[in-house]
């Protein structure tokens, strides 16, 4: 799915990530942890082609990201659902339209898509809030809407950046259950988080690898988690 080989990323003269090799195989579940500013978001951006590595190679579905044109990367992003910590909605559109945005930009139309959207909104428990504008949603609702948008194209991979950063424990658990459910459907999941309780809660339910970014490198976390 996504492979990184000796990847490094530098910005402003400093190296943020160094010599990272990793493979996210189909159906796997990963957590990426580390202190704030360690480079978790940068790592995720490398994984969906929003940043180009300054050294090494990132392969998305077999193709070197450097060889991909802008349109190819856009098409690739339809196969990689991304949930941002700040969700990134279009605030002038209702929640349902925000969730359906990947369908709209891909040119999908018609009743089948509308049915899928209703099912998805129901799955994340937001049917009643479909007509609300994003600023009217609570933190948990925003994260669930962002997750719904990330999976509406039925992507192979879901990358979530601090998805539980701004929500309470109960809502975090609910969101985690949705991600575990997706993994059981065969999706590859990677969650970047500094919430160790969330990782512990997940590990009791799913076979997950925990990676830690430390000193610019990604390492497999120990049993202390």
């Amino acid at each position: 799915m996504i492979e990184l080989e000796n990847v490094a990323y530098s910005y402003g003269g400093g190296e943020l990530l160094s010599d990272i090799s990793l493979e996210l195989s189909s159906g796997s579940f990963h957590f990426l942890t580390g202190p704030s500013g360690a480079g978790k978001t940068t790592f995720l951006k490398l994984c969906y082609g929003a940043l180009m590595p300054t050294a090494g190679q990132v392969r998305l579905f077999g193709g070197d990201v450097r060889d991909l044109g802008r349109d190819d990367i856009a098409l690739m992003r339809r196969r990689i659902g991304v949930v941002h910590q700040d969700c990134q909605f279009l605030d002038h559109l209702p929640v349902a339209d925000n969730v359906a945005l990947p369908l709209m930009v891909s040119g999908y139309e018609g009743g089948e898509q509308a049915e899928n959207l209703r099912e998805l909104m129901s799955w994340v428990g937001l049917n009643a809030r479909a007509g609300a504008l994003p600023p009217e949603l609570s933190g948990g609702e925003r994260q669930r809407a962002a997750l719904a948008r990330a999976v509406i194209m039925s992507p192979d991979v879901v990358l979530a950046d601090e998805p539980t950063g701004n929500i309470d424990w109960e809502m975090s658990q609910r969101l985690l259950q949705l991600l575990i459910e997706l993994n059981r459907m065969g999706k590859t999941i990677m969650i970047a988080t500094h919430d160790l309780n969330l990782i512990r809660a997940a590990k009791s339910q799913v076979q997950a690898r925990v990676l830690r970014i430390s000193q610019r490198q990604v390492q497999l976390a120990g049993a202390d988690l």
């Binding site: 929003a50 349109d71 856009a74 098409l75 991304v82 990134q88 945005l101 930009v105």
Partner: peptide, 16 residues
Amino acid sequence: AQVISVLRLVGARDAY
């Protein structure tokens, strides 16, 4: 700029 960034994130092509 924010709208464009979101559209790129969800897979919109430049032409769109």
